[in-house]
Simulated assay, not measured.
Amino acid sequence: MKTIIRDATASDASSLAALSIEVWLGTYIREGVNGFFADHALREFTADRFRSRLQDQQRTIFVSQNAVGIDGMIELIAGASAPVAGCPNVEIATLYVQPRHQGGGKGVALLQAGLAHARSSGHAGVWLAVNAENQAAIAFYERQSFQNAGETHYEIEDQRYLNYVMRRDL
């Protein structure tokens, strides 16, 4: 099935929210869903939040779309300060591909679209934060020439989760 990489539009907001909930819960909630994480996901991943993000001039969102609908997304934020020194100021805030579509090149295609956009916008590199327990994602980014630049934490209320900061020059 052919995949198209394109700019996200406001009409994609609900699909982006559903995709984000699916991937986030599937990646990070492995022992059962409790109210703490469910409330966080339902607060963070809403169509209204995506519509707002799509209007933000500092953000760029690309989607991968197959014949049925959206199966992946990448979001970049220009001017984002990295939590460690020496990183560029463009963050890859999100790179999600539905689990059943992983391994077929969609993540690489989305990443390449994001990197090309950053490069054509005059940026020298990008950075991202990845959960320290997500070995599959870390290995993916290493295969794409990202290097570990330090550590940070993803915070949900009073809980902190170790993330690695990775960077890549363009």
Rank of each mutant, 00 (worst) to 15 (best):
M1W: 00
K2Y: 04
I4E: 15
I4T: 14
I4P: 00
I5Q: 03
A8P: 09
T9Y: 09
A10S: 06
S11L: 09
S11F: 04
A13Y: 06
L16F: 13
L16A: 10
L16R: 03
L16T: 05
A17Q: 07
L19D: 07
S20N: 00
I21A: 08
I21S: 10
E22V: 09
V23R: 08
W24V: 11
L25K: 15
T27Q: 14
T27G: 14
I29M: 04
R30D: 07
G32H: 06
V33T: 09
V33R: 03
V33G: 00
F37Y: 15
A38M: 14
D39E: 15
H40Q: 12
H40N: 05
A41Y: 00
A41K: 02
R43V: 02
R43N: 14
F45R: 04
A47T: 08
D48G: 14
D48F: 12
R49H: 09
F50C: 05
F50Y: 15
F50N: 13
R51H: 12
R53L: 13
R59Q: 03
R59S: 08
R59A: 08
F62G: 03
S64P: 01
Q65P: 08
N66R: 15
G69Y: 10
I74D: 08
A78G: 04
A78K: 12
A80V: 01
A80P: 04
A80L: 02
S81T: 03
V84T: 06
A85Y: 01
G86H: 02
C87P: 05
C87W: 04
C87Q: 05
P88W: 03
N89R: 06
N89H: 09
N89S: 05
V90G: 01
E91Y: 00
I92L: 15
T94I: 05
T94S: 10
T94A: 11
L95N: 05
Y96V: 01
V97A: 11
V97K: 10
Q98W: 00
R100Q: 15
H101E: 14
Q102V: 02
G104K: 15
G107I: 01
G107C: 05
G107T: 07
A109G: 02
A109C: 01
L110H: 06
L110S: 13
L110E: 13
L111T: 07
L111P: 07
Q112E: 15
A113H: 09
A113M: 12
L115P: 01
A118T: 02
R119S: 07
R119D: 04
R119I: 03
A124F: 07
A124V: 11
V126K: 03
W127T: 03
A129G: 15
V130N: 12
V130W: 11
N131C: 05
A132F: 04
A132T: 06
N134S: 07
Q135I: 13
I138H: 10
F140G: 10
F140L: 01
Y141R: 08
Y141V: 02
E142D: 09
R143A: 14
Q144F: 08
Q144L: 09
N148F: 04
A149K: 10
T152H: 07
H153V: 13
Y154C: 06
Y154N: 05
Y154K: 06
D158A: 13
D158H: 08
D158T: 14
R160L: 08
Y161D: 02
N163S: 06
V165W: 11
M166F: 00
M166E: 05
M166K: 04
D169E: 14
